[in-house]
């Protein structure tokens, strides 16, 4: 009887591990192994195979590194902030369940269904001098006949602004969906209690809704933060490689566009590691600041 119990107890303890093993093996082969390989490669000299920091030296002295870092930071800060507030606003509107809310939700979600290449191509067509955006502005009377706005011509800042707007257009629906799911999970009674005790809409939002939504906000923002650091496809569809360098675009540039340059493997490896560290740090800092760790530690 005791042996039977022991065996049952052992089985209970082992079962979860056994179930996880296939996934673990899969990740070991297809994720951990290439990642480790990349980490090791970034510290090796490709010609001698000796330990070397050359990849990092090359990246840090690359004239495009600082602009890439700056452009990425600008995109991340502005787009994540803007996308979060607009998505929250939309989620709060849809949650009120007004007439036509479902259709509004459906329309708002459409950009999410488009791949980034299609989004880039669509906007590029629209933003050309004789594109649909200028035609629309003419049609509604915002732009006098014969006048044109050269959306795609101009400074780096103008291009950055366009990229942020286009990215926001595509990404806001996904952030909104996450926030909406979080809002719908908040028990109505809690908000009703807030109103009963004299709170107005904004007080209830600030004191009850948003604190309860915090875990969802953390998820949405972390996911968005990581994705924003990894923006590159829209950039190259709009302006091509190298005109507006961003971090991940640099990796693709050295890996795909100039793969036979002597320095390309080192540059691609160096940039990859730097992006990995930045993404990890950004996520950690955000989670730390938002109190995710302290709450878990506190139980």
């Amino acid at each position: 009887m005791t042996a039977q119990r022991k065996s049952a107890h052992l089985g209970k303890r082992i079962t979860p591990y056994l179930l996880v093993i296939p996934v673990f093996i899969y990740y070991l082969i297809f994720w951990v192994q290439p990642v480790l390989q990349q980490v090791i490669r970034s510290f090796l000299d490709p010609t001698t195979g000796q330990l070397s920091l050359e990849s990092y030296r090359l990246v840090l002295t690359d004239p495009d590194f600082i602009p890439a870092l700056r452009n990425t930071a600008i995109i991340v800060v502005i787009s994540v902030t803007m996308e979060f507030f607009i998505a929250l606003f939309l989620a709060l509107i849809i949650k009120r369940d007004f007439w036509g809310a479902s259709i509004f939700l459906f329309l708002a979600m459409l950009p999410m269904a488009l791949p980034p290449v299609a989004v880039g191509a669509m906007w590029k067509t629209g933003l050309t001098t004789n594109g649909w955006l200028n035609s629309l502005l003419h049609y509604v009377g915002f732009l006098p006949e014969g006048e044109k706005i050269y959306w795609l011509a101009g400074s780096t800042w103008k291009m950055l602004a366009l990229i942020i707007i286009i990215d926001a257009w595509q990404v806001i629906p996904s952030v909104m969906i996450i926030l909406l799911a979080g809002l719908q999970n908040i028990p109505k009674e809690l908000e009703e209690a807030g109103y009963v005790f004299g709170g107005n809409y904004f007080t209830v939002l600030r004191k009850i809704t948003l604190p309860l939504l915090r875990p969802t906000i953390q998820t949405a923002v972390v996911l968005r933060l990581i994705a924003a650091i990894q923006i590159w496809l829209i950039v190259i569809v709009l302006v091509g490689f190298s005109r507006l360098p961003v971090l991940v675009e640099r990796i693709v540039y050295y890996h795909e566009e100039v793969p036979r340059l002597n320095i390309s493997p080192q540059m691609a490896a160096g940039y990859t590691m730097i992006v990995t560290v930045i993404v990890s740090l950004a996520a950690l800092i955000y989670l730390r600041l938002s109190g995710a760790f302290s709450r878990r530690e506190g139980g």
């Binding site: 590029k124 050309t128 001098t129 050269y150 795609l152 011509a153 302006v239 005109r243």
Partner: peptide, 8 residues
């Protein structure tokens, strides 16, 4: 053309 830098 003004948008020449975007022409591929």
């Amino acid at each position: 053309m003004p948008t020449v830098l975007n022409v591929d």
